[in-house]
Structure formats: structure tokens, C-alpha cells
Nucleic acid binder design. Structure first.
Lengths: 121, 121
DNA sequence: TTTGTTTGTAACCATTCTGTTAAATAAAAG
DNA sequence: CTTTTATTTAACAGAATGGTTACAAACAAA
């Protein structure tokens, strides 16, 4: 048994795997939204949205604020930062095209990986 | 017949949602690997790995090279670049909030978007 | 051609999603 | 206290996912 399982928080990747949940995050980029407002923007029932929101919340991708019965949700992007960290080493492969090479350079400096194919700032 | 339902048009996000598939990608960072070599590294059967590889290939995350019966797989990072592009706007969020402020200050010292509750309707 | 090696596909099964409708919870309003 | 508003939770059906074993296909070697 290799048990190469938990490389990092599984729930984050599961959370963003679903297109509806990604769309919810996209909507929240415009700012905080109430639960009903979110549901209105999708062709599925409110309970379905409530559960999607629950998954996102559990994955730490959004924040909840309560006011009376209403619940407002906003982005908590630290969870996505985890995905970003996972992506980081792969970024070396297409690094030449990115405009923001700073983090790549830093990453490469500490982890002496393969060929340092010409990177320039 | 039986409509091979295992491998349909799946998004990149679905492909990387599975921890085994992410681990396969991680293994391939070390360089090209044969199908059998990949399977050896995991506690699941070869057919299971073959299918995971198929999903990754379908998602455009890896490339296949054939030599006799053998098949070698290597990273095709353009697919992950797609994830990176999706992540891009969110990166501004966590960057502006609390992570790696040094980089932020240097890179985009002016765009300190703290975005206060914008209800756009 | 026959045999052995390597790998993918088919069929099957258990488990996990995702969506629905109905009921429950919580707080304000009347 | 009862009703209205806002939202989640419960229960369930149907589809998708991921694992297994058995079989087929492709190719090299004998």
C-alpha cells in the first residue's frame, strides 16, 4: 500500500470540480451576495444551491455573515490559494508565458528541480 | 455497445479533482513514465490506473508516446495552464488580503483592491 | 505461427454526487 | 401568538465515479 492519498485538502479540489460551484464563486467576485440572490442566478432549486454553498463553505472557500434570517456569502480565497500552491511546480512548464514570474523564480531558488529553462524577468 | 461512460468529455477540473490523478501528475513531474511504471506506484489495479490516465489524457493534461506495445506518458502542462487562468482573478483576492504581501507590494502596489460590498444587480 | 509481454476495454458492483420535493428551523412582522 | 419570510436539512431517485476481475488487442520474440 502506497497510500499516496492526502497530498492536500481533498475537499478544495472537489469543491471547484463542479461547474455550478465555480460559477457561484465567480458570482461572488462581484461582492457579497445573499443566499437567495445566489439561487436566483442559477437554474436549480434553492436547496441545491444551499448544498453547493455548504460544500464551498466547508472547503473554506467562502465566508458567511448573518443578519436576521438572511445569510450573506462572500469569497474566502485562502482555500484557492491552496490550489495555487499545488499548481506552483507545474507552472514551471509554461512559465515563459506568464507575466508574473516572481514566485516561480523564488520557488526554483529553493527547490533545485530539473533544468532551469531560461526564465527571465 | 455499452456506451463507454467512463470516459466522457470531462473538464480539467474533474480530472484534477481525484487525488490519484493528481498524484499521477506529480509522478510525471519527474519525467516521462511508462504505463506500468505508473501503476506500480499506486495501490490500485492497472486497469484503474489506465482509466485515470485516460481521463487525464482526455482532459489534455498529458501526452502519450508509443513504442511497440509500451506507452509512455508525460505532462502536457497546457491543460493546467487553463486552471491557472481560471485562478488568476482570485489570486488578486488572497494576495491583496494577507499572503505574501511583499510580492504584492512589488508587483502591484497600486491595485490594493479591498472591494467593499459591491451589490451589483 | 505461436507464445509471452504490455496495456487498454468491458462488465459489474458499491459508493458518492446532484437534483427534487417536503419538512424543519429561525427570526421578523402583524 | 400566529403568520410570513428566508434558508437549511431530510429523504429519496437517478446518474456518475472509482474500484475490481476477466477479456481483448497490439506487438516482439521464438
Amino acid at each position: 500500500m502506497v497510500t499516496n492519498k492526502a497530498i492536500l485538502n481533498r475537499s478544495t479540489f472537489d469543491a471547484i470540480a463542479d461547474p455550478t460551484r465555480r460559477a457561484i464563486l465567480d458570482q461572488l467576485m462581484g461582492g457579497e451576495l445573499g443566499a437567495g440572490e445566489i439561487a436566483e442566478r442559477f437554474p436549480v432549486s434553492r436547496p441545491a444551491i444551499a448544498r453547493h454553498v455548504g460544500v464551498l463553505k466547508k472547503a473554506g472557500l467562502l465566508r458567511e455573515r448573518r443578519d436576521a434570517q438572511k445569510r450573506f456569502y462572500s469569497l474566502e480565497p485562502r482555500g484557492l490559494a491552496e490550489v495555487d500552491r499545488w499548481l506552483q511546480p507545474y507552472r514551471l512548464y509554461w512559465a515563459a508565458r506568464l507575466t508574473d514570474l516572481k514566485t516561480i523564480v523564488e520557488e526554483r531558488a529553493k527547490t533545485r528541480t530539473e533544468n532551469p529553462a531560461g526564465d527571465k524577468k
